[in-house]
């Protein structure tokens, strides 16, 4: 169709008395040019739009992808933290089990008074008969008779860790000795000085309330 129009134009011009071939060509070309310009414009717009859409889609896809990776990463973190939480809870529950508390108290030399005895601070009256618990008289002196497989497992693990720590400490001590000989003190070989223990002054024995 576009070829047909200049031909029709040429025919109508041919009717005029003074036709000029070069001018004729020029007009045609300018008319064609003028008519073609919008088409190139639309084509360009279309191509650019398509290009923009493709780029946008790629960017969206990339961001979605990286989002997916981030989600997967965070989910992995959640799992890891969940495991850490479980591990810590497990340890806490084992350590707070009465078997462990009783045995630890025994190891620390704590002995439960067998008789309930009360001291009334106001008049220093002792109610109940305080009797000393004899050797082997504590409840767990015969060992823990309420087994706990989970605690046994934890104790074994603790023992392994303690042995490893002792070995590490021995190793460090050796390094420390070697270090001091050369005048260098290794990190961790000098413990932080303990803050001095301040005794609570109690000049008249136990404090007792003045009100009656």
């Amino acid at each position: 169709m576009s070829m047909a129009r200049p031909m029709m134009g040429a025919r109508s011009i041919a009717v005029l008395p003074t036709p000029e071939p070069t001018r004729q060509l020029h007009v045609v070309s300018s008319a064609v040019g003028r008519r073609r310009r919008p088409k190139v414009f639309f084509a360009t717009v279309t191509v650019i739009s398509i290009f923009v859409i493709i780029v946008a889609q790629i960017l969206l896809s990339i961001s979605l992808q990286s989002g997916a990776y981030e989600i997967a990463g965070l989910q992995r973190d959640v799992r890891e933290l969940g495991r850490m939480y479980q591990s810590a809870t497990q340890d806490l529950n084992r350590m707070t089990s009465p078997q462990n508390v009783a045995q630890s108290a025994e190891v620390l030399g704590m002995v439960g008074n067998s008789n309930p005895v009360y001291l009334r601070l106001s008049d220093s009256l002792v109610t109940g008969a305080a009797t000393a618990t004899g050797a082997g008289g504590t409840l767990v002196s015969q060992g823990n008779l309420v087994p706990n497989a989970m605690l046994a497992q934890a104790l074994a693990e603790r023992q392994v860790a303690a042995t490893a720590a002792a070995e590490a400490a021995a190793q460090q001590a050796r390094t420390g000795v070697a270090g001091s000989q050369t005048g260098n003190v290794g990190p961790g070989s000098a413990p932080a000085p303990l803050s001095p223990v301040v005794a609570v002054p109690s000049p008249q024995g136990l404090p007792s309330p003045a009100t009656r």
Partner: peptide, 30 residues
């Protein structure tokens, strides 16, 4: 979970894990 974390950290390519929910009694025979 502690053993699992430690074995996983070894990154042995032919070791795999299956997880199973299990019942635990932290106070043992109490």
């Amino acid at each position: 979970v502690d053993a699992f974390t430690q074995i996983k950290a070894l990154e042995i390519p032919w070791i795999y894990f299956e997880q199973n929910p299990d019942r635990a009694y932290p106070n043992g025979a109490v």
